[in-house]
Design a protein around this nucleic acid. Structure first.
Length: 583
RNA sequence: GUGCCUGUAGCUCAACCGGAUAGAGCUUCUGACUUCGGAUCAGAAGGUUGGGGGUUCGAAUCCCUCCAGGCACGCCA
């Protein structure tokens, strides 16, 4: 199914060819409703290139344009813009097609790629905290969207399970562990022994050295230490799984740092042999003399003491994803502080001759109300689990106020959908580069650009169908025109009220918006669209009675409701947000 | 010191990689209902896009410079 945008773009390029002009400019949604639905700046661009009058060029283009029945006569406006207004009949026709389409008009990509998405990446022996929200939520949303667009997506959780912190954890395990506490709350106990060991190590060099020895033994394959390590990983994973279940996030692969352990010597060896790396001050280092930005920022891939660091691991990871997973693209959804690190890693990969598209998807931090990095009152990271449970608790409180007659089970289920949805949406609705300020009040508000507002639009539609009964649902879901037995049903969609036409146009845009998210990894384009859709729906809902109206308006309006609900559900679903039937 | 990112209404944020009079929400003010869920809708007010230069038909967007904040800069991850 073709979108209006691509249809008009095609017709525009035909018109340009017929007018003897080269392709130029672009066709975009109109910047203002007064200018119609779409606009092009082709004549302006050509006018500049050829030194001709843009308005005259615009007239030439318009004269060659074969509008078909999609849009009204074109209008030349301003300095030489060409404006396109869709005909309501064409919009109605397209809406009918969307009703019958499971994909709601969204085309699959013509060039599917295998994309490894690296996101989340929590650390073993540390609870997940707010710092993991953005990577996890953004990565999951991008994975869902890329997959929906037809890409072969591999979600990989690059867990931090092999760092120097394990020396301390093992030391603490052997010297400080409280078995009872471990039974009651495993991760809390691991964190406690880690922190306490860290403190001791800072005070006593002998403890520090003992930790180092534990690490060496672990990496040398010592059985006792490996057993401890295995148990720590398993216990941490249980905590991660709990959070992932709440968030409805899953991975195809969880290759943590330890997975690459055996490959590190080979990586260093190869880079030394190819001359990309060299020995410097006893360490193995890569220099980047050809890149001005990296010229005086070398990267160490093997320490003077022979140990490897996480740069080495990341290089091994690239190798694995390129050679074993056969990735066409690798996306790293990792915070801004690591920008330099990834530039270095990517540069090395290029020098090694990898053609894979490597991309660091950067995002800003989450700040507290004080505009500083979000922390608890005592200055610690806020555990993600607590935060998500708090979100559900607050959502539930609102539900109790608004809709106390719901059953306990329903309340719990709805509170989870709203609470988790609100947290995710607050994150995704913002441009990913900017830091954002975390606010319960804002994200759980029923007003404005929030998940609950969109969920509520969906709920109101479902309410209409509950009231209308099964017949109406069957009508609408099956496409307009099916006989229901007890009520005459329109066979065509008729759009007369401006609010109807506006809503239908909006619904047609879904297929244009979804692929655009991939342009620069910006789910907030989709959230903006969904917010506008919900607005358009509410305007329509206010102005156009559905169930009380006569045919053919009734069927048409039910169809618009049905399609609105499906687009909201699908759109939110692509962001990893669920919709309740009531709230 | 060097590099990267950010700076838009009182507040929180948009603006589709140069387009038309910079848009929403929150807040404030004014209207609409014995509601298909008012958990809503319609309208008003609110701006020298951090400052200053430059590029051109046209700049929040590109270039230069300054200011402010954040982050990062061989042997942590």
């Amino acid at each position: 199914m073709e979108t209006f945008q691509s249809l008009l773009a095609k017709k525009l390029s035909e018109a340009l060819a017929n007018a003897g002009l080269p392709a130029a400019g672009e066709l975009t949604p109109a910047s203002d409703p007064r200018f119609g639905d779409y606009q092009t700046n082709a004549a302006l661009v050509l006018g500049k290139q050829r030194g001709e009058n843009p308005r005259a060029l615009a007239e030439q283009i318009v004269a060659q344009f074969e509008a078909g029945d999609a849009c009204e006569l074109l209008v030349v406006a301003g300095a030489g813009f060409i404006n396109f207004t869709l005909r309501p009949e064409a919009v109605a026709q397209k809406t009918m097609e969307l009703l019958r389409d499971d994909r709601l008009g969204v085309a699959e990509t013509r060039s599917p790629r295998r994309i490894v998405i690296d996101f989340g990446s929590p650390n073993v022996a540390k609870p997940m905290h707010v710092g993991h929200i953005r990577s996890t939520v953004l990565g999951d949303a991008l994975a869902r969207i890329a997959q929906f667009l037809g890409h072969d997506v591999i979600r990989d959780n690059h867990i931090g399970d092999w760092g120097t912190q394990f020396g301390m954890v093992i030391y603490g395990w052997k010297n400080l562990l409280d078995r009872g506490a471990l039974q009651r709350n495993p991760l809390a106990e691991i964190v406690r022994i880690y922190k306490e060991t860290n403190q001791r190590a800072n005070d006593h060099p002998t403890v520090r050295e003992a930790c180092r020895q534990e690490l060496v033994r672990l990496q040398a394959g010592d059985k006792e230490n490996n057993d401890i390590w295995n148990e720590c990983v398993a216990l941490s994973m249980q905590d991660f799984e709990h959070v992932y279940k709440l968030l409805d996030v899953h991975y195809d692969l969880q290759c943590g740092e330890s997975f690459y352990h055996d490959r590190l010597p080979g990586v260093v060896e190869r880079l030394l042999q190819s001359g990309i790396a060299e020995i410097s001050e006893g360490a193995v280092v890569v220099f980047f003399p050809d890149d001005p930005e990296l010229a005086d920022r070398p990267l160490i891939i093997r320490k003077r003491d022979g140990g490897f660091n996480y740069a080495t691991t990341d290089l091994a990871t690239v190798d694995y994803r390129v050679n074993d997973l056969k990735a066409d693209s690798i996306w790293y959804v990792v915070g801004a502080p690591q920008t330099l690190h990834f530039k270095q890693i990517f540069q090395i990969a290029r020098r090694e001759g990898y053609a894979t598209d490597l991309c660091h998807i950067v995002f800003g931090s989450i700040l507290g109300e004080d505009r500083k990095l979000m922390k608890t009152r005592s200055g610690e990271n806020v555990p993600l689990r607590d935060l998500l449970e708090e979100a559900c608790k607050r959502a539930r409180k609102i539900i109790e106020e608004k809709n106390p007659q719901l059953s306990e089970d329903e309340k719990t289920d709805i509170a989870e959908k709203i609470g988790i949805g609100a947290v995710k949406y607050a994150d995704l609705s913002q441009y990913r580069m900017t830091d954002y300020i975390f606010s319960w009040e804002k994200m759980l508000s029923l007003h404005g650009n929030t998940a609950p507002y969109l969920q509520n639009a969906y709920v109101r539609i479902r309410s209409i169908f509950r009231k209308a009964g099964e017949a109406a649902i069957a009508t609408s879901l099956g496409g307009v025109g099916k006989k229901t037995g007890h009520r005459p049903v329109a066979t065509e969609l008729t759009l007369t009220h401006p609010a109807e036409i506006n809503l239908a146009k909006r619904l047609c845009q879904f297929a244009e918006v979804v692929p655009q998210v991939m342009n620069d990894f910006r789910p907030n384009i989709l959230t903006n669209y969904l917010f506008e859709l919900a607005n358009s729906f509410h305007t329509f809902y206010e102005a156009c009675p559905v169930l009380k109206s006569d045919e053919p308006a009734r069927s048409s309006r039910l169809a618009l409701c049905d399609l609105s609900a499906r687009v909201l559900q699908r759109g939110l679903g692509l962001l990893g947000i669920k919709v309740p039937e009531r709230m």
